[in-house]
Design a protein around this nucleic acid. Structure first.
Length: 481
RNA sequence: GACCCCAUCGUCUAGCCUGGUCCAGGACACCGGGUUUUCAUCCCGGCAACACGGGUUCAAAUCCCGUUGGGGUCGCCA
């Protein structure tokens, strides 16, 4: 039985990298009928916050990446918050201490810093090489008796540690290059390496899929598992998401919070699809997948090894795609937060006109503004039709007004008949007249189709706006004479 | 600097394992054209890559070595 986990640290808003790691874990797990666990790694008390924990849940749930066990849903291997599992780590620590596989380190931060710099200057890897590893029990007790603060280090074995990565194949490190690392802080807090490994063991995690930034931690984790006498999980390291400059994606250079993308009106379907496409390909030419379809098509071996840039343009395209595919009712529902004051019935008629023009939901207010405003603001010069003067445009709009007045019901067909007829009579180019009307009625040169738009706006509003346009044009021709 | 990883169009990638079917396919972006009352959609077309150098081979994007480039890690963060 496969068991996987996503192990976020609630030290910031849910990062898209976490979301993608969760996604790959989710796909792998569902594909194989396993159990997906949410484990909160909140061992860093100073930086962990409840609101971030909530943000992780909200963001991942929004993406429909639900978990089977977790702090908020329970399960047989809880608690699922590391802050609530200290006794478990304490027991593991005792085991290591008793076997002399870990030892107290009394070095001060200053001493460590000094040693680090010295080794760096000698072009040596900055690993720990203090005196504490060889302290006798008596010396350790003496130092403790003096009240000296101490951390606890794990004795990293002096041997080659190799493992078979699900994605990159065989990887190996020299344990001696790594050095003894801290697993407990002087204040008693456990460091991620220990809690992470202990929990993976205790929670019977079989496969760990995580970011590439963890490959160099893997030998530590393998050594820890061995010291604890446990069989380690199988590891797989997915490539990182990159900034356009190819550095690791960071909020300094890019928005990284899932909640940001959510607010901008990216659909969760598009987000999931996009995230899956970063570093993974189905091997076919297909690129649009629902979450369920991804589960069916996914294969961990097909995940690439090279980092990939977060290409917002592709996300935009996918999002537009998904928006266009949404049923009217569904789109209206999703648009509600962006147009909270709109009358539902009226909105139902407006939405079809902007659906294929939307790349993000948050563009809706700007695209539909003229449907809701009373007074339009625009440059009157836009009313002057191409190849025509202000006066000619005014006269034409006057005729448009007359013609429109004779139309009882502003249906698409009646508008088309009336207006196209007028184009003929005037001898104008269709586009020239229609653009003048468009600007008069919407205040914009880029709008949904004219007749549909006018039909939705209704006769009254259209006539009023055309009258206003005529006034503006009169003022302009007046200025000239 | 050390260690580890990576390397196909601007971007995401297919192909690489099992060399020839690849003068390298798809998608996004971009450019051009068509449909069209504008915008958008849609359709058609175009631009554009095997990082470099050695090998191995009848034949290399595919195998090997090296170089270069990029990234990650080196925390009493995760």
């Amino acid at each position: 039985m496969i068991r996987t986990r996503i192990a976020p640290a609630p030290t910031g808003p849910c990062h898209v990298g976490i979301a993608r790691t969760a996604l790959f874990n989710y796909l792998f797990t569902r594909k194989h009928g396993g159990t997906f666990v949410m484990r909160l790694e909140d061992t860093d008390v100073a930086r962990s916050r409840k609101e971030f924990e909530q943000d992780v849940y909200d963001s991942l749930r929004w993406l429909c990446l639900d978990w089977d066990e977790g702090p908020d849903v329970g399960g047989d291997f809880g608690p699922y918050r590391q802050s609530e599992r200290k006794q478990i780590y304490q027991a593991a620590l005792q085991k290591l201490l008793e076997a002399n596989l870990a030892y107290p380190c009394f070095c001060t931060p200053e001493e460590l810093e000094e040693e680090r710099n010295r080794r760096l200057k000698l072009k040596l890897p900055p690993r720990y090489k203090g005196k504490c590893p060889t302290l006798s029990r008596a010396e350790q007790e003496a130092a403790k008796a003096q009240g000296k603060p101490y951390s606890i280090r794990f004795r990293m074995p002096d041997k080659t540690i190799a493992f078979e990565d699900m994605i990159r194949g065989k990887v190996q490190f020299d344990g001696a290059e790594i050095g003894d690392f801290v697993i407990v802080k002087p204040d008693g807090d456990f460091i991620f390496h220990l809690s992470n490994v202990v929990d993976d063991i205790e929670m019977k995690i079989t496969h760990v899929i995580r970011g590439e930034d963890h490959v160099s931690n893997t030998p530590r984790h393998l050594a820890l598992a061995e010291a604890l006498g446990a069989t380690p999980p199988t590891y797989g390291h997915i490539p990182l998401i990159l900034n356009p400059d190819r550095s690791k994606m960071s909020k300094r250079k890019n928005p990284t919070s899932v909640s940001d993308y959510r607010q901008w009106g990216y659909l969760p379907e598009a987000m999931v699809n996009f995230l899956a496409l970063i570093g993974w390909s189905s091997g076919t030419e297909r690129e649009v997948f629902s979450l369920d379809e991804l589960v069916a098509a996914f294969s961990i071996e097909a995940v690439g090894r090279a980092g990939a840039i977060f290409d917002i343009e592709k996300l935009n395209w996918l999002n537009g795609n998904y928006i266009r595919a949404l049923p009217l009712e569904e789109l209206q529902k999703r648009l509600r937060p962006y147009l909270p004051d709109a009358d539902p019935d009226y909105l139902r008629r407006v939405i079809p006109l902007i659906q294929e023009r939307l790349k993000r939901l948050d563009e809706a207010p700007a695209l539909t503004e003229f449907f809701f405003r009373d007074e339009l603001e625009y440059d009157p010069a836009l009313l002057i039709a191409k190849k025509h003067t202000a006066e000619e445009s005014r006269a034409a709009l006057s005729q448009v007004l007359d013609r429109l007045s004779t139309i009882e019901e502003f249906g698409i067909e009646s508008l088309e008949n009336g207006l196209r007829g007028l184009v003929e009579e005037l001898g104008w180019k269709t586009g020239h007249l229609f653009m003048a009307i468009r600007v008069a009625v919407t205040g914009s040169t880029a709008t949904p189709p004219l007749f549909e738009t006018m039909s939705v706006l209704g006769k009254e509003r259209c006539l009023t706006r055309i009258r206003r346009a005529i006034e503006k044009l009169s003022a302009m021709s007046g200025e000239r004479t």
